[in-house]
Amino acid sequence: MFRLRTHSTDPVTFSFEGRRLTASRGDTIAAALLGSGVFIFRNSPVSSSPRAPFCMIGNCYECFVRVEAMGVVQACLTEITEGMKISKVSNLIDESETGIKESSKR
């Protein structure tokens, strides 16, 4: 997709799905991931089809990722910061977040 970023004058370290990666300070999360060769950001909640950034200006909402302590964010509008732990969004909200779980239906 994009040429991998080989060096950076002002690097930031972060992780995606447990993988340690680096980006340049000031990058958006989307740029940081695409520059590190990450292709799939999430799976759609309708059919689980894989998705990745499409418009990069905050309009298509395809680039949702989960950031520890922040929740689900738009990767194209959020700046990467040192130590950020990012993961794929398979479902927009996971159980630990709402705490509403399936209860026995009668």
Partner: peptide
Amino acid sequence: TERSTDQLA
């Protein structure tokens, strides 16, 4: 709200 996989029975 957005879709959630959690369920309210």
